[in-house]
Amino acid sequence: MDSQTTVLKPKRNLWRDIKRHRSIYLLLLIPMAYFIIFKYIPIWKGQIAFKNFMPRKGVLGSEWVGLANFQEFFHSFYFWELLRNTIMYSVGKLLISVPLSIILAVSLYECRIKVLRKTVQTLTYLPHFLSWVIMYGILLVLLAPGDGLLNDAIKAFGGKGIDFLTNVKAFPWVVLLSDAWKEMGWGAIIFIAALMGIDPTLFEAAMVEGSSALQRVRYITLPSIRPVIIMVVLLRLGTILSGGFNQLYMLYSPSVYSVGDIIDTWVFRGLQEGKFALATAVGLFKGVMGLILVIVSNRATKRISGSSLY
């Protein structure tokens, strides 16, 4: 008898729980339908990466070709170029934006002039909300070869004007620095939140001990936000194969494809040119690698900081 009740009890509870939440399940019907249609059917359609996809024949009707599409991609001359550009931009942005965001956050935290602090904080967050189309417009004002502000300055100092957006040497820097300009302030928010959590008595104690302001930054402020810095870096590494489609698509042109083409922009052109199966294979390659990276970086984050995003 005893064993029977212990077996039955959770069952009855589960049923009761389900019944009690029936309106929630009803509420979930539309979101679930949405997920099936817009998230899961596309994943299923991803099988065309292994097929010789003909739009006429449809996803199911096209014939299987195994890994032929992947082989074509791995053996093509653009494979290494795409991979190199993509990683160059993600790592470059990480190396530039994260230190800048930390410097900005610490400076705002240490600044003793309230007006300056508020103004800079507000202004540096703003560009995050501007789209890359708008950013392109602003960059044209600055960088246009004939009448841009920067070329005016170069010419004023006797230099020769550069077309920054079509010059293979200048283009990567335009991408990296414009991203830093746009996202530096937004990236600083998380560090500012971490700084706000530092126990103020630490500073008071250090001040009593006669520490200098620089020592306090070096020995209190920076070590306190170290876990957050590590977390941000690890999570950014999880998206290393993204590189920033919207930015590169807006800024690049055929003359800088060799340094401006990343996996996502290539896939997009593949779609425009009707190379569905090949481009899907490239996208799927990126998706699988991205999944592995996200899982690894989340594991690492969890181990180091004790909490993860998921």
């Binding site: 589960l14 729980d17 389900i18 939440h21 979930l28 679930m32 997920f35 249609i37 817009f38 998230k39 899961y40 059917i41 596309p42 994943i43 299923w44 359609k45 991803g46 065309i48 996803v59 996502d264 896939v267 997009f268 593949g270 779609l271 569905f276 481009a279 899907t280 490239v282 996208g283 799927l284 990126k286 998706g287 699988v288 991205g290 999944l291 996200v294 899982i295 998921y310």
Partner: peptide, 26 residues
């Protein structure tokens, strides 16, 4: 009941991105 399954349903498409073409076909 089923919250764990629901979490997986929501997270899988987020972490595993098959790219723009399957979505375009849909």
């Amino acid at each position: 009941p089923g919250r764990a399954i629901l979490t997986v349903i929501v997270l899988v498409p987020h972490m595993f991105d098959v790219g723009m073409i399957p979505s375009f076909l849909m």
